[in-house]
Nucleic acid binder design. Sequence first.
DNA 1: GTAGGGTTAG
Length: 728
Amino acid sequence: MFTKLKQMATIACTASKPLSSTTHPLISLLEICESMDQLQQIHCRAIKTGLAANPVLQNRVMAFCCTHECGDLKYARHLFDEMPEPNLFIWNTMIRGYSRLDSPELGVSLYLEMLRRGVKPDNYSFPFLFKGFTRDIALQCGRELHGHVLKHGLLSNVFVHTALVQMYLLCGLLDTARGVLDAGSKADVIAWNMMIAAYNKVGKFEESRRLFLGMEEKQVLPTTVTLVLILSACSKLKDFKTGKHVHSCVNNCKVESNLVLENALIDMYAACGEMDSALGIFRNMNNKDIISWTTIVSGFTNLGEIDVARNYFDQMPEKDCVSWTAMIDGYLHTNRFKEAFDLFRHMQATSVKPDEFTMVSILTACAQLGALELGEWIKTYIDKNKINNDAFVRNALIDMYFKCGNVDKAERVFREMHQRDKFTWTTIIVGLAVNGHGEKALDIFSKMLEASILPDDVTYIGVLSACTHTGMVDKGREFFLSMTTQHGIEPNITHYGCLVDLLARAGRLKEAHEVIKNMPIEPNSIVWGALLAGCRVHREANMAEMVAKQILELEPENGAVYVLLCNIYAACKRWNDLRDLRQMMMDKGIKKIPGCSLIEMNGTVHEFVAGDRSHPQTKEIDVKLEKMTQDLKFAGYSPDISKVFLDIAEEDKENSVFRHSEKLAIAFGLINSPPGVTIRIVKNLRMCLDCHSVAKLISKVYDREVIVRDRTRFHHFKHGLCSCKDYW
DNA sequence: GTAGGGTTAG
């Protein structure tokens, strides 16, 4: 008994405050005080009773004003200014108050004032000071304060150390933060977690993983948060091995599992395509939330198993915006655009409000379908519903306008953007290029460089295709070289494809072939395909045959190439070869991709396949086609079926050139839209020669602007001419 | 600390 009493007394002494039984009632009152009003009453009373100078009371009053949610910092400052010699606790508390109030600069000046008055900072000063820092102030005085930490020998304190790491992370100085982390003698797990979170945030998942493995080496015990962070990194890296290792850490009870951790595990397995493992965890969970379900849904959509995903989606007890968007996005990435739209309509019938992510998905669907009316409707929807019109949405909007052939509106959105990122610039460059404004695209490219936005490999694809579509061959070659010399971007197979395309289209077929022969990467069917396309345009039968063979070696199933080769043999009257090839196609069951055109009318997208007779308006379309042919013949049109070999050859030859999908779509457009309205078509293959001349004549004879987006570029037909200048 | 988004040659 005696010992126990003694212990209590010691504790009371070291705590330097009286035992609760002797605490002054006013001080006890402060503990349960809940408003500034009450605080002021207590304080008044303290002044009257002469207790105001009591350090314990002062500390508590200051702490309330500076840290309580209804505290008044001005009141604290007033008291503070009256104190002849505030103690360190008071200084720290004031600094803490300013941090809470988002006034870090006041915190810093107070801290400097403290130094001037000879008070030395302690373990608490820096964490409080750094806590309220903004990026600006951290960049401004972080390094100097770091010096102060060292000078006062405080780095070994876990809180100070962690605060310093966090402060550098706030500056975005990840390497410096890492240096501090590594140099710390007592680096604790919170600082490690912060560091990993920072790496994750900037996409340096590889670093996150390495740091985690380093932690294990140093035997720093991970927390649940650590494992969640690492699982997130593994998910992005699709690192099944480390992910599974983390899972075993959970199973070995190194940390306590919870819902977030289980979700992170599902996500990791899903990202690695291990849906069985993901489902194993999912099914065993006692509590599942929307995130668990959504993770399963997007796991399946990412594998292209859209119908399985839909099954889980339909079973969800409740859905939020993310779940809807994940499902819509799944349809988008499997090219099921109409279902994406249908689902969006479903979503609108619920109380869940779409957000900017949903808008990006839907705008992308519009872009793919060339559905300008729907896209415009979405734009209005965004404005009306005040959906966050962020850079992603605007970039998607620009892309939508371009993919619908509306260059003016795309440019307008671009002009009105204040914050343009790499994607914005790249989108506009590619968009201008494929719409036939190559020079403008290059002009924008130089403006991008002036704005100090670094181009990437995709930007250069845009730049090269700008050159290709406008026939600027030498300029294109220069850009091809400068991407490495100026920006250190090594050309990939795609860039070689562009280069070959550039040369081949311009008729420099031998040069293009040389590029293929000398390129450091193994050419693929796409690179050879670019040369083949050049052979078609420039009627180089011999080279075309050789190239076609090359492609078939790489891709024996490539139907379009077979058809082209058939045409070559027919043109050269090599009937035996032709028969053999036809037989081979039959044996292998080679199918060509059918030509297909889309046209949007009053918000509905209509699809026409070559030779199609399934559309409800087929009879009217037949009549219109008949009339069109007559009208056009009158204007000098003669159907171009003689040069089948030189023709696109991707379209079914047996289907009359008169029933090519774009002709059906144009006829449909002419029937269903008033005079003067632009007809917009999206085609899956390249336009054939005949359809191209028909479209030109239609634009003249019926005075209708026709825009066709084919597989490679846009054709803007107006007054009998095409923006591609017959070069495609 | 966990789920969903924009640019890519033929």
